[in-house]
Amino acid sequence: MIEFVLGVVAVIGGYGIFRLYRSLAAAQRYLEESGQEPPLQLEHLPADVARVAQDTRSLRLSLEGPLRQAEDLLRVDLMRTQDDVESAAQVFMDASREVAEWLYTFDRLPEAKRRELRDAGIGPERIRAAMEAENWAFELSNLRVKGRQTMDLRIRNIVEELTRVEAALQTHSRGYR
């Protein structure tokens, strides 16, 4: 009798585990196929660094707008109005401010934490350099600059660097293991 009960429990338990794995796999598949952002893994990070990770993702996502704007402006469009151009300028100005604010969140981290992150290859230097090269603002007049990439590519570089920082922050726990 006991064996029977244990057997039933084992079967039910096994089926439960099977269902759980299957739903997890389905969820994983869904997330992968839906193109949605996987949730940030921040449990291992102290609060201020976790905040940087969140801000990094927010900035990366919000730069999609100016990136599209830059791509759009670089295409010939005879229907483009002055309003469209002005609203693009506004988007660029907001984006510039957001990047500067992101850099500031990094700067506000305690020196020890910044050093630790730097040792793990995580830092704002490339983005700072990119913004310095932009004179701290994405400007319409600089969509195309001789000797440099077009603005969409320059923004894309920043997005890629942010993606790298975001990923590195999620895997980073300590600089020295």
Partner: peptide
């Protein structure tokens, strides 16, 4: 401020 770009 602490060496921020003027606009932010």
């Amino acid at each position: 401020d602490l060496n921020q770009p003027m606009g932010s």
